[in-house]
Design a protein around this nucleic acid. Structure first.
Lengths: 255, 255
DNA sequence: ATCTATTTGTACGTATGTATT
DNA sequence: AAATACATACGTACAAATAGA
């Protein structure tokens, strides 16, 4: 275990901080005991006795940790609070809340995409598991014809983003996987995205389709350098399609 | 008042979902009413009456939202729960918890840094406010001599990371600012980082010092392209210094 | 400065739901 | 099927903080 940095948070006892105090105690306990996901924390009754606090206070503290995805509780015998591995989805949802009051433009999102997605492609070139590759190719059938209406165009676009999320999830760099996945999630959650892609044309569809096909080939047989280059072209093209559209991302829904 | 879900409807719901129900209700309320940071939510008493739930349940729900940084509560007359703008620090802390059980290597972090920090530099070239620029230059005095011991070397490194955090905070792309700031925070939080930089030499310090100086000049007088290039060199050099060190990032502290 | 009203924060006892044995 | 162990929910009482008279 790494040396535990002592937290002065407990010393600064502001007002009405009993609940936070219990929450901090539990987090410190997890770290100090080196608990791993699945490990059990003391029961409510034990905490009440050990900390000398009421049931409500202890419960509020566990709820706070549960809200952050750190623990999860089960009822019944052998139940209690267990350390939980925060899911990427949960972490993305919380991060999305942070951006709820901030204005993100599509250009902002693509500025990161254009830098990071090629890295993902380079890392995954020749390393995509066969079943995943098969899944990706199967999904490609959605794109084998131009969209017949706006709704289908939107569906194609969401499916494309889903592919990028799935690919990112395979990436061995957890941070890269998370950030790229987060951006794709934000883009798919956008209700305005259909408007973005409304001025469509057969040429644009063709371009997207070709990029997609080349990308899959590069992932399966190409070198990291070719995969990176293909993905970069793909991103730059997509970015160019909407660069002038200075549409502010509409606030979505808190999650 | 928001539409009240009837008590019977809630009763038929599955177990243990009352608190989450209230939390969801509140988030939906914030969205539906278009509430902004500072706006007030209904009081505990009002919620108890409107939702037909106990005080404890309502409180647990508000604590969950508070734990996510969405609201903050104040006591006294005119008090209550208020919509809160999640701070970047809070969001970073929650995200750091997500990576607590995931192994991030320094290489993972630098893979993103090397792509994103040059973007920050390019965006900020010629746009750093004068006082910020003065602050940055003042901090440079920390580097005007080679570190005399390991502790000072570590201090220099943390100060350097702080500069990158401060610069990122100025970046007009909120997502780019957040991700770059987050990486710098993770790197500075690492207690092992001193070990990483232990094999130091005067040449390495000189290199870091020169890059820093060139970077400040590029930010103040350079074009986006030169600033980007300088930052990229800076990142690649730093990355090269530790590329072979496959040190896993030790788990820090939950926050 | 003191009181008062308002509103969250804490405590505790009890009852109920739920899953394990 | 029944007993057990645990979280979940309710209701009331009281403490603490804060704004305003």
């Amino acid at each position: 275990m790494p040396p535990v940095t002592t937290r002065t948070a407990l010393a600064t006892r502001r007002n009405g901080a009993r609940t936070e105090q219990v929450a901090e105690h539990l987090k410190a306990y997890i770290v100090a005991q080196g608990l791993r996901p699945g490990d059990r924390l003391p029961s409510e009754a034990a905490l009440i006795a050990a900390l000398g606090m009421s049931k409500g206070t202890v419960r509020e503290a566990t709820r706070m940790l549960a809200a952050q995805g750190l623990i999860r509780t089960r009822t019944g015998p052998g139940g209690g609070a267990f350390v939980d591995d925060i899911t990427a989805d949960h972490a993305m949802a919380m991060l999305a809340n942070f951006f709820y009051f901030r204005d993100l433009s599509v250009a902002d999102l693509y500025q990161l995409r254009i830098q990071l997605e090629p890295e993902v492609a380079a890392m995954m070139a020749g390393r995509v598991p066969a079943e995943a590759m098969a899944r990706f190719r199967a999904e490609t059938t959605r794109f084998d014809h131009p969209p017949r209406d706006a709704e289908e165009e939107r569906a194609q676009h969401v499916a494309s983003l889903q592919f990028h999320r799935d690919l990112a999830a395979l990436c061995p760099n957890p941070l890269l996987a998370f950030v790229v996945g987060f951006i794709a999630k934000i883009l798919s959650d956008l209700t305005v995205i259909r408007r973005l892609y409304e001025p469509h044309s057969r040429a644009l569809w063709q371009q997207g389709h070709d990029h997609h096909a080349r990308l899959l080939d590069a992932l399966e047989h190409g070198t990291p350098e070719t995969a990176r280059a293909v993905m970069r072209q793909h991103m730059e093209a997509a970015f160019g399609l909407m660069a002038e559209q200075e549409i502010r991302v509409a606030r979505g829904v808190l999650e």
